[in-house]
């Protein structure tokens, strides 16, 4: 394992760790009020490591929904990761399958976003492991802390920190948008389609993100291909 790459990964993942902090804390707290023990709440963060799915699971447990339905729902919410890891694979340095199978566990919307927008053409396994380690650490530790202290951050801080992950997405996107109309179009079109799904409730969030991403990516590729043929 390349230590310098690993440290660079830890550093690149710090903004994810900050963004996960209030969400994990609240998750731990909600898990407690849902009736989960410290062990049960922490175990979900350790083994599932998927924010949205875990929150949904809590509300479904409260609603008395059958566990199998909760599992199926989790799958639907996470289908979009097929698309993300397929895209990420293009950027990763080739490595042993077992190593890739290990770090694959740590791919979330956030770790994917940080990894996929790195300036380097190829990303090493060590760098990815660094990004994942600090993100996963934050998620698991602050889930426990939230359950243990059983109280939330002061409201003003909780409200202010809820921007963190979106600010990170914006901070990752903007530098690539500079002077690159293709990147701007990709983001704007996907955001517009996703908003359409949101306001019409045609698709649930998991599907909406996947369909709008794919539609935008294919549309822009089709347009740029036509442009090349014409010129």
């Amino acid at each position: 394992m390349n230590e310098r790459e690993f440290s660079a990964g830890l550093k690149a993942g710090t903004s994810i760790a900050i963004g996960y902090f209030p969400i994990a804390l609240t998750f731990g707290l909600l898990a407690k009020t849902t009736g989960l023990s410290l062990l049960e709440a922490t175990a979900m963060s350790i083994f599932v490591f998927a924010g949205a799915s875990q929150y949904i699971a809590l509300s479904l447990i409260t609603a008395g929904v059958a566990p199998i339905v909760i599992v199926l729902n989790t799958f639907v919410v996470n289908i979009r990761h097929f698309l993300m890891t397929a895209a990420l694979n293009e950027k990763m340095v080739p490595d042993d399958r077992w190593k890739k199978a290990l770090y694959a566990f740590g791919i979330t919307d956030e770790t994917f976003s940080v990894l996929a927008t790195q300036k380097n053409n190829k990303i090493t396994t060590a760098f990815a492991v660094g990004v994942i380690t600090i993100s996963y650490g934050s998620w698991v530790v602050f889930t426990s802390v939230g359950h243990l202290i059983g109280a939330n951050l002061p409201h003003f801080l909780q409200a202010a920190m809820s921007i963190a992950l979106y600010a990170m997405f914006i901070g990752l996107l903007v530098p690539s948008m500079r002077g690159n109309r293709k990147v701007v179009s990709l983001a704007v079109i996907a955001g517009a389609i996703n908003s359409l799904f949101y306001f019409t409730s045609w698709l649930s969030t998991g599907w909406a993100i996947m369909v709008s991403t794919l539609a935008s990516a294919i549309f822009i590729e089709w347009i740029s291909r036509k442009g090349v043929k014409k010129s």
Partner: peptide, 17 residues
């Protein structure tokens, strides 16, 4: 090429709305 477009499209969809 489509896969290379995915990260920026994902960011747009994750941010908005």
């Amino acid at each position: 090429n489509v896969l290379r477009n995915i990260p920026y499209a994902v960011l747009g969809a994750l941010i908005f709305p």
